[in-house]
Design a protein around this nucleic acid. Structure first.
Lengths: 253, 253
DNA sequence: CGTGCTTTTGAAAATCATCAAGTATAGTGG
DNA sequence: CCACTATACTTGATGATTTTCAAAAGCACG
């Protein structure tokens, strides 16, 4: 797709990782792939890794580019998407800290990734990590687990895109966001897990749910007038009735 | 979802595989997971496998059931799908001979599988195959490859479901079917790879493409009047202009 | 405190779904 | 082998959800 991936990745900070110091302390280690490598071998992981800062809005994986790297997100959120020549876009997921990126690729990436907010990522050379898999079966095992759980999410999303109404899509999305913030040990726990913050724009939500911005906005205001959610501001949503939202999301009502 | 998976699986023939004889001769071996196990160890694979015949229309994986097995298709085609309580259905894929099934599951299957035609499958106990992965890294490696390529397909399908028009969906579907029959070394090669046979009904196509039966039918007749395809009969489609179909599928024209 | 972008809201248009027949096709039994 | 029935597919008319086009309101940033 793009002639040069260098045009896309212009990290403001690139830090080659030094053995055992950085990785062992990484706060993402407990939840990421890296925990499949024992402490004493972390230097081998660090040897194929580079920690990078990515400014908000910047792309760091371009659809169609040669898939030379894997990424592990250590800070910030990314949108992952596929595009059509005329600009239509389908966001296939949002990637939070701890997410491993790059499995959905053959020789070339099948998707693009852009920073929603300022990000930090660990970038692994593909060849390097694949070599590591030969010595650490646990690493490959973990990647298979990750791929399988992404497959489950992908199928859920296909059901949403192919068969759910706009209202059901929004309900599903908000609940998934709510579950996400309550699950993540690092995220702040809000009152009753009900306040959801959305780091992405309405355009991103629309492209994720297969709708238009206007339909997303209209559907949210409808959910508000139905007293199912409250909208303190455009990027905060209070799930007033998670039970009924769940029923809507599942198409039962 | 279902109380008992036994109610679903009523194979007419169950053949416990005997060491080295069956697997080594299996015509699917060259293209399936099984080729990651060396010939001399095939008895260990056979020890956790059962070959089963499944009559047309019968389900053999039920969404929500405990994920006790993996499957490898050796004959016939299956539809894989997710359902909503009110009966809405999203087919996530069609599985041809050589396909490995069961990765998109955690403790429970996230999808269901039914035979489109009379099928033969090799059923592996999950625990058994997972134990084998510990001894044969190549097996786990192959499964990761499979999971990754399914992830790519899943993302392609999300773009289709979220952003493509009915016409674009049908064009994409027909071309994918065409590519499939020309790729598979076992499938008969038709003139110029242009004649596609569809083992599934219009309802299945509709549920795969996120449309209704009527829209599928109407869109196909429109493609026919546009001289892009011919319809010798309802389940055979001749791709008269693959180039233009490709452009339509990609949204360029 | 503008200026520009995002979000919301409104009106009109379109694609696709639903409802409803009608026509093939396939499988069954006489 | 042929009628008969059931199912699958096609076609038509209508309708609804969602999109498109358009503009106002709200926020954020300089």
């Amino acid at each position: 797709m793009s002639q040069s991936s260098m045009a896309v990745v212009r990290p403001s900070v690139v830090v080659p990782l030094r053995p055992t110091t950085v990785c062992a302390k990484c706060e993402q280690r407990t939840i990421s792939v890296c925990n499949s490598i024992p402490d004493e071998d972390l230097h081998r992981l660090a040897a194929v890794a580079v920690n990078m800062a990515i400014p908000a809005g910047q792309g760091f994986i371009e659809e169609g580019d040669s898939a030379g790297f894997f990424y592990n997100i250590t800070g910030g959120t990314a949108r992952l998407f596929k595009s059509m020549p005329d600009g239509r876009r389908q966001i296939t997921g949002f990637a939070a800290p701890g997410t491993f990126l790059g499995l959905a690729a053959q020789a070339h990436y099948g998707f693009a990734a852009e920073a929603l907010e300022p990000m930090r990522v660990c970038r692994f050379s593909r060849a390097g990590l694949e070599a590591l898999m030969e010595d650490f079966a646990a690493l490959e095992h973990r990647l298979l687990e990750i791929a399988c759980s992404e497959l489950v999410l992908a199928q859920d999303h296909m059901l949403l895109l192919g068969r759910k109404t706009a209202r059901e899509r929004l309900a599903s999305f908000l609940l998934a966001r709510g579950a996400m913030s309550s699950d993540c040990p690092l995220a702040p726990r809000f009152n009753q897990h009900r306040l959801v913050t959305l780091p992405m724009s309405r355009a991103d939500i629309a492209d994720y749910l297969g709708l238009t911005i206007e339909t997303v906005s209209r559907t949210l205001t409808k959910l508000k007038t139905d007293r199912l959610i409250a909208l303190p501001d455009a990027h905060s949503i209070d799930l007033l009735d998670p039970t009924r939202l769940k029923m809507i999301a599942d198409g039962e009502f």
